[in-house]
Design a binder for these strands. Structure first.
Lengths: 239, 239
DNA sequence: CGACCCCTTGATTAGCCTCAACAACCGTGG
DNA sequence: CCACGGTTGTTGAGGCTAATCAAGGGGTCG
């Protein structure tokens, strides 16, 4: 996590130590395992060390909405910080390793490291912006654009750690999971993926996706990369 | 705003003063006016004194997605805090009065009032949860449920200031605006509203809506009130 | 090897959109 | 005061997108 935050500001030793405190424990989860269910009472947050996860809600009609996929370096469970119970459930897409820590630890950070807390707040706002983008995508664009948009988001986020020139990446998601993130059925996701392939925008090889025509892909989606840069000019001084 | 935060914790005099600092200026906007456009450079946030507003994004296909409606006491523009430019535009639904303040003022709050900043963070997380609920609604439920869900959300939020027994409220929104919030066309919003009226769930009189059968309405939507209570147990000590 | 999961494709259905027309209401200006 | 244009709400008809239902194939794990 310290590594992630260091992308945006230069951390002081004291800040680095405070962040290190949060990553002392480790817990492993198997592919498909539920880290935390909806309505659970847990007071824990998690930092992802390894693997992909997603957070989702289950609806009374039996369907599911995936809110966000989580990669190494992400903090998951933050959304439930403000509530007594967990508001979503967290599931491992692949085998994963997480570092759990208690809410109270975050209070310490807020108390002692104003700049870190403002930065964590900023990152949370970037995630919220990304959620808003997804809402716009699901609410107001075609099925094909929604799928393309999700691919663009995954690509942009993987590039943060995988290099800005990344064009080919492994997607361990089932088409049903992609559907649950984009508000589509698995069947229709399949057709839209095929349509993207047929039009030469992407290529697929098993679960590996290669971007063939990034310009046309992003143009079709009006995608905005929320992770490229944050405005850190307003942050208070470091301690 | 101090009044709003006082719902969750008892503010210290020093905290109250810090919040008062944010509400020193006032600016008025006419119905339909744009407070701040997408991509604007402004470093301002706003506290709503009077009126309804919404924040939305415009898509390249000409459509619009409304992210959230804002009422008196809300802080608007927070989402753009983390970015150099505004990520959404803010428009006045009715004549409105706002108190603008600069990002830097918030930095001061983060520096000097850890509990307030954690609380502001929590409220931002509650808004994010509400956005997630909307996404689930738009992505995975029927048109009728989406409209009903929006009505439930408005009702729950108006009750925070209007009293818990509120059943009848004025909705200054056009059906097109409701459609842009729920991912529907104005025509279909109209049909769904009619269907809710025909089934005896709500009654309409001009732009006033009365909830006739709240139990059935909320049951149809699996609505969760994100504003009723926040978990403040983890907050750091006050200053 | 069998069971299960996931992908794929086809046929049909349903929900929501589009287009269109008209009524009601509002603020504006003559 | 009334005429007017513009906006909003309402309703109908028809079309298209995505869902549903269904069936088969490939891969993986026990």
């Amino acid at each position: 996590m310290a590594e992630r935050l260091a992308h945006y500001v230069t951390l002081t030793p004291s800040e680095e130590e405070a962040l290190g405190q949060l990553e002392q424990q480790e817990r492993s989860f198997r592919r498909g395992a539920t880290v935390r269910g909806e309505n659970d009472l847990g007071r824990e947050l998690f930092i992802v060390q390894k693997g992909w996860l997603y957070s989702c809600v289950l609806l009374s009609n039996g369907s599911r909405q995936i809110m966000r996929f989580h990669f190494p370096g992400d903090v998951v469970g933050v959304t439930s910080l403000a509530f007594g119970r967990s508001i979503d459930s967290i599931t491992a897409v692949t085998d994963a390793v997480l570092c759990p820590f208690d809410k109270d630890r975050l209070a310490t950070v807020f108390e002692e490291h104003p700049r870190l807390s403002a930065l964590i707040f900023s990152i949370s706002l970037a995630e919220r912006a990304s959620l808003a983008d997804r809402l716009a995508s699901v609410g107001r664009t075609s099925a094909r654009a929604r799928v393309a948009s999700l691919l663009c988001e995954l690509l942009a986020r993987l590039r943060v750690t995988g290099g800005a020139d990344l064009l080919e990446f492994h997607v361990p998601l089932t088409q049903e999971e992609i559907g649950d993130a984009t508000g589509l059925t698995a069947v229709h996701v399949n057709r839209m993926m095929r349509s993207l392939v047929d039009d030469g925008l992407i290529a697929r090889n098993g679960s590996t996706i290669r971007i063939l025509d990034e310009a046309r892909l992003t143009a079709e989606v009006n995608f905005i990369n929320r992770y490229a840069q944050l405005d850190t000019s307003w942050l208070p001084g470091a301690r």
